[in-house]
Structure formats: structure tokens, C-alpha cells
Nucleic acid binder design. Structure first.
Lengths: 232, 232
DNA sequence: CGCCGCCAGATTGTCAACAATCTCGTTGTG
DNA sequence: CACAACGAGATTGTTGACAATCTGGCGGCG
């Protein structure tokens, strides 16, 4: 299942941007497994760029928290333990609560309408039993609230954190019954923000993410209480 | 005043690590002015490393938010506007509140004693009228609470954010009367955390950082309501 | 029989040179 | 006199090769 990487020879204009985008996508999609070694020359060949360009991309991804690098020993896809996923989600709670408050204070009528429409689509995805679509709309909702809040700093932090736990989030969305529970919490957030009730929005956001943390803990204990090494 | 950079030829062992540390230090200390262009070849010569190594360091610093890079146009020291400083501090509020709560929940007797000692030193620095020392202890306090909280994710985010606004923080500490006000707020935080009162700790932290935001706003309007371009 | 040091392969870190792109001053034209 | 195209200089992006470091297995010694 952990196939090496996808191959995208290269576009015409950009150069190392291509490597960066391709690698990031490969990691997020899961084409390269967490813990897998990322050998510079090999990847450079696959992506059609030189080692230096790919190296720069690796540095960028390291800064994004998607790759771990140890000085003379190479890079590998970062593996986030369930405990780290919880810690990350706790930070997300703090930041998203901030965004929710600000969004509820400054939301326009158009934005409120957009949010409610998104809520409708979320409900639709649940009733269809389509967890992929739901997961996608979920991320879209959180992103949208960030945009409405105008807190670009918080949004960029949240994007980084989100990217690090997409795998966990995705896995959560597949748990039976989870989308239903999540939906109610999301609708509460939407209602509070669209209704311009900052305190409610904060409360609903905290409730939702605390529920996510609970689920992460449960999933973590169920799957891997201990974390041995990922193969060399 | 914006002298080019300090020169540290190079240590014996590390290589681009040297460039990274030296450049970061130069930016934080203020040896290179915000907005100043960072020409690769020039800096490489000053630091005694090759352009490739320095380039990697620039990429790292870009990820840390200390440097801005535009594709074919070079890098310059990032300038954070007063508005951005406020937004950053709002994020800090959210994250430090989280840390304060967690720290108040898990603080040990030894750690509580350390905090109180730090509080004493803060008071001492104020009574001495030593803003530099106060500013340093201030940062130490925030860092210490982060460590006690055990929220390593939040701490690393806070370190990034802090680094981006050291200049503003430092400038604030120099405003007359500011240390006195800040001291009271800090002591309240220390008391709440050391006294294991999470709710109080969160409240005190928010109060303190909101006060910082107010000061940032005031300083921002006083100094530069508009922000023209920093010289080429 | 087990442990220590050493050698070969592989991988990362570094370097100097080449090509592409941009900035800015100059020149020619309407 | 103003504007636009042009080109020299400077700066970044990229390339391929070289040196330093690490991994893992082999042989010698206790």
C-alpha cells in the first residue's frame, strides 16, 4: 500500500515549486506512508527535478511539519502519534475559538448565507452516507470561518496544523455514527456565527473540537496503544 | 543604524546551521533592519559560507516568518505592521490561555516555586527601572509556563509568533509606566498558575495579553498610521 | 562464541559554475 | 517633452560534481 511516489515529470514554468507541491500532495493523499524514508536522489529522479530543488522542497515541508529531518541521516514522512494529534487539536481549539468569535462579530449577510448553505450541504452529505464528501465540506467550513474572521495569522497557523493531522481527521470521519454527531455540532457553530452570537460561537466551537479530541483518544487507544518503530 | 550584518566567519563543525543561527540572531537583535534586502552572495561572503548554504538558511527563516521571499526578486527582512502585531498577539492570547490552563492543572510544587521566584525577579527588575532585564524575564516567564503546561505543540507555535514580534515587544517595554502595569498582570498569572486555579490563570492571561494588544494599538497609531515603503 | 574495529556502499552536505530573470539607466521616437 | 523599447549589470534559480558522514556487514581478537 505504501507505493513509492507518484510521478509528475514536471511542468514547463515552475521548478522547485513543482517538487514542493507534488511532494506535499503525495504526503497528504497518502501516496507515501508516514515514517517512510525520503531519499533525495530517488525522489528527484521521480519528479524530474535536481536534488538541490528537491532538497529545498524538503526543507519547506519540514517547516510545515509534514517531514522530519535529522542532520546527516535524511528525511522521512513525519508520523504524528495519537497523543500529538490530540495536542494539535487542543491548539486548534484555541485558535478556532478565536476565529469563531471574530467571525461572529464581523460576519456579513452574504457570508452568513454561505455558511448556512454549507450547513445544508453537510447535512446532505450525512444523509447520503458520503463520508468523503462530508470530510471535505468539514474542512471547507472550518476554513471559511477562518476567512470570515479575517484572522489571517490564525488561519495560516490552522492550515499548518490541519495538514499535519489530515490522516487522523479522515480516519475519524470513517467511524460509524461519527458524521451524525459531528453534524449537529457543526450546525450549532454555523447557527451561532451566522446569528452573530460570539459567545455561543466560541462555546459551540469548543464543544465540537473537544468531541473530536475524545474521538481521537478513543481511536488512538483502540489502534495503537504503543508506537514501535516504523520500518527502516 | 541598520549596519549590514555582523560577521562570524564560521565555526569548525556545523555548516549551514551557522548561517541559520547567525542570520536569525542578526534579525532578532536588529543588526539588520526590517525591510532590508538580503542579498545571498553578500551575506554568504560575510558569514563565510557558500550561497547554497545561506540559501537554505533563508528558506528556513522564511518558514519561521522572519524573512519574506518573492520568487525571482530576492529576500528581505520581514516587516510586521502594528496591525499584524496585534493579530499575532491575539493568536498568542488564545494559545497562552490554553497553556496557562494546562499549566495550572499540572504544575508541581517545584515549578510553582520557580514561578514565584521569577515573579520576584520581575518585581526587582521593575523597581530597578531596568526594562531590558524585565523584557528578558517577561519572555522567560511566558516560556516557562509553556514548558510547565507540557503543550509542546502550542509552545513551538508561540516561539514562532514571539520571534516575529520581538521588536514590538521590546519597544513596548520601553514605554514609561508600562513595566509597572505589566508587572501586576504577570504576578496575577503567576499566582493563579502556582495556586492551581486554571480558570483564574486563563482569565489573568487573557487580561494581560489584551492589555498588550491595547498598548500595541496605541503605539501603532502614535508612530506610523500609514506604512509607506521601506527603502529599496 | 561473542564483541570490537574496519571497509564498502549509500546518502546527505557542500561547492563553484551556468542559465534564467529582473532592475534600472539609456536611447530613440511620436 | 513624455513614453516605450532596448540592453548592461546585478541577482536569483538550477545544475552537476566533489567531499563528509552514516549504515551495515566482514574479519580479527579476546
Amino acid at each position: 500500500m505504501p507505493r513509492p511516489t507518484p510521478g509528475g515529470p514536471q511542468a514547463g514554468e515552475p521548478a522547485r515549486t513543482h517538487a514542493l507541491a507534488a511532494l506535499r500532495q503525495a504526503i497528504l493523499i497518502g501516496d507515501v506512508a508516514p515514517g517512510q524514508r525520503l531519499v533525495e536522489e530517488e525522489l528527484a529522479g521521480l519528479l524530474g527535478v535536481t536534488r538541490a530543488s528537491l532538497r529545498a522542497a524538503l526543507i519547506d515541508l519540514t517547516a510545515e511539519g509534514l517531514v522530519e529531518r535529522v542532520p546527516n541521516r535524511g528525511a522521512r514522512v513525519r508520523v504524528v502519534s495519537p497523543e500529538e494529534a490530540v495536542a494539535i487539536t487542543e491548539c486548534r481549539t484555541a485558535l478556532e475559538a478565536l476565529c469563531a468569535v471574530k467571525a461572529a462579530q464581523s460576519v456579513t449577510d452574504d457570508e452568513a448565507a454561505q455558511l448556512r448553505e454549507l450547513g445544508g450541504n453537510l447535512a446532505l452529505a450525512v444523509s447520503e452516507g458520503n463520508p468523503l464528501k462530508y470530510s471535505e465540506l468539514n474542512r471547507e467550513l472550518h476554513r471559511q470561518i477562518g476567512v470570515i474572521s479575517g484572522q489571517s495569522v490564525a488561519v495560516s497557523l490552522l492550515e499548518r496544523l490541519d495538514a499535519q493531522i489530515v490522516r487522523h481527521q479522515f480516519q475519524l470521519a470513517l467511524r460509524p455514527g461519527r458524521p451524525e454527531q459531528s453534524l449537529a455540532e457543526h450546525l450549532a457553530i454555523i447557527d451561532a456565527v451566522a446569528g452573530r452570537r460570539p459567545a455561543d460561537a466560541e462555546e459551540a466551537t469548543r464543544r465540537h473540537l473537544n468531541s473530536v479530541i475524545e474521538q481521537l483518544r478513543a481511536a488512538g487507544e483502540a489502534e495503537g496503544p504503543v508506537s514501535p518503530d516504523t520500518g527502516p
